[in-house]
Design a protein around this nucleic acid. Structure first.
Lengths: 209, 209, 209, 209
DNA sequence: TATGAATGAGTTTTCATTCAT
DNA sequence: AATGAATGAAAACTCATTCAT
């Protein structure tokens, strides 16, 4: 076969792109190295030139994916042009809607097959995003916008709980249900933060009138 | 090999016992049918006499495991000798502490390897326990012990959130941390239910003074 | 389970009925002993009380099936109330149309899966039917109705050839094609037997005007 | 184990050679993948690198085998240096004697075990060879060497019938019988084609004086 | 005669990984 | 950097058959 030499980083990314797509479509276990290299159009052996093992690559793929999100969130968290409420809202919206415009955050991710990849992503997300959010909340408490006694623990419960909740209704088609679920989420968050200033926009296309 | 014939139900349970132990110790993927039958001391084929496939058995194992919990919870939910607060507390304690006296609910369950089994258990638990709990809460609202606008959605967020939270600290050895986490959980639950009557006892050995 | 004792021959036939049906539907290889006994509603072990092995049973099933056909053919061959032409025609019609009213001679038999059973049946049929037919032909030669030099060899070629031919068109729906194929077969048979007196009726519903 | 790398096509053929030999000797069902790769001296996995499954390989083996025959027959059919009678004879001889010099066309092929492989070969052969032969016959009719009304149907009956016939006597040792069977076949073919010009030479070593 | 749990060898297939070129 | 043939261990599953009751 014709031998095409490319820049290392480019090749690596090509492989990761192909892999992520396949992982999401078919599940990690079900995707073979052969699937990946075929999609890229390179030889079997090249995979092992760039990645130590299949699992190594999974980690690399997830890292690359999450890092983008965390970067956005970090930018919001440190943006001092926003007042606390706005900052919080923007953070939440970005956090939960991440991937929405990303063809990868498809229904695929919620299938049984993708437990591992989904779980790993969620774990890492929570781990990295929670401290940022905590920072915002503490700021809000300080400025007396929020009022709660256990900010850290509240997030430890709220974040995973919300992720579950969002994922449960993300693909719900019923506008009415969505609208209720949204309002409910808003109410619950406000209650947990001891405020009433938070408005959400986490479900796409939901009108908030 | 000597042929020992047993009652079908007994054998099936023997196999499930062995399997659950192994799944938890080694992970589902890593446990082979051969492992299971060797532990029980029967022939390979017998496994398939009782279970259609490895996955079928996993489901059976989980069902058997969960059903016991749900039964206990259902008993509490329908026990009219308890007032709402007590009933709620007992329910929560039972729910989150289930497995504590069960050698199986070990750290094992929280390992990466057991994502599938853990996830399947959590899903089924939430699905079956939430309606029972909702019933209690609605009763509490009716009796004006609780006050919240979106009981169902509150549970949809709170239950998975709490499960995560509990699991995160279940094996924490630091008494002080545990005590704080407990109080925090209590505070958060009370806040969500619009009450202050709930006391928790979810972490084993936690003193509640 | 309730234990139902039956006459040996009856049980054996029950098992063979079930087996034949399954062999034809699913193929011999694909049909398991378990399939058979389940369909009859008896225990696994009973199979081996009546049959030495799965292959033994196959032979028994085929024998039973063919013997009926051969009996009919033998009756025709020895029926002296018929003239040679009529006898020949009746024989051929019976031979090739056997199974037509028999729900078993279904398309099933022609599937790839049933090579073994189909082949075994064909072989046995040819082996037993050919001598009977040869007898008729020799009679016809003697009576100068037929004229051919190698009656035995003619049958050795014609019978398998015709079986193939019939099976190829048996399920053809196109009336016109069938009509042509019929006329062709007639022509070929007459030519081989050195006569022109034979009329066929081997394809069901074919009009012969 | 020492790793010997070969050209893909070569390896593939090596595997097919080994497989065909084994299929014929032991039967398709009885031959295991392990048998095949051991004979070639390669790893188990290599088989699946080249063939999707055992059945896939069977098809590949048969295709390769038949294609050679068909090529020869096609050459004869299109050889305009031969007159019709010669062409027909040569075709028939080649057709029915194929494999004679081929150590593979051994008695093996006629064993019960090889029903599948034998049947698949016969089917494919008939399917591909019949149109070629039909072409010759139509040419013969046109040139008034042959005279028959239903050439296509005649072949549909004659070809499978002859294959059966040949296979029945191919390994017969009795010279006298063979001689008779040969003459009979000749007579029957001539009769079916409405000619008397065809001479056969299908049984090896048969003297034709 | 009948039951049905138990046997266990045997088979195909899968795939991450290696390595000579 | 890249190729792609080769490795080989491992695993799930099948099913005819047996046998204690």
């Amino acid at each position: 076969m014709v031998r095409v030499t490319k820049d290392a980083e480019e090749r690596k990314n090509e492989l990761m792109d192909a892999a992520l797509e396949l992982f999401l479509k078919k599940g990690f276990d079900t995707t073979t190295i052969t699937d990946i290299v075929k999609r890229v159009g390179v030889a079997q052996g090249l995979f092992y030139y760039y990645f130590g093992s299949k699992h190594d690559m999974l980690d690399a793929v997830i890292d690359r994916y999450i890092d983008n999100l965390i970067e956005s969130l970090a930018n919001i968290a440190s943006d001092n042009s926003l007042n606390i409420t706005k900052k919080f809202q923007l953070f939440i919206d970005t956090f939960f809607r991440y991937g929405e415009n990303n063809e990868l955050f498809a229904e695929d991710l919620h299938k049984d097959k993708n437990l591992i990849i989904h779980q790993k992503m969620t774990d890492k997300t929570i781990k990295l995003a929670t401290p940022l959010l905590l920072h915002i909340i503490n700021e809000g408490i300080h400025k007396e916008v929020f009022s709660l006694s256990y900010p850290e623990e509240t997030l430890e419960i709220l974040v995973p709980g919300m992720m579950d909740y969002i994922h449960r209704y993300y693909f719900c088609q019923n506008k009415k249900t969505l609208s209720i679920k949204m309002r409910a989420a808003e109410d619950i968050i406000n209650r947990m933060l001891g405020t009433c200033s938070v408005k959400l926009n986490i479900f796409a296309d939901t009108d908030m009138t």
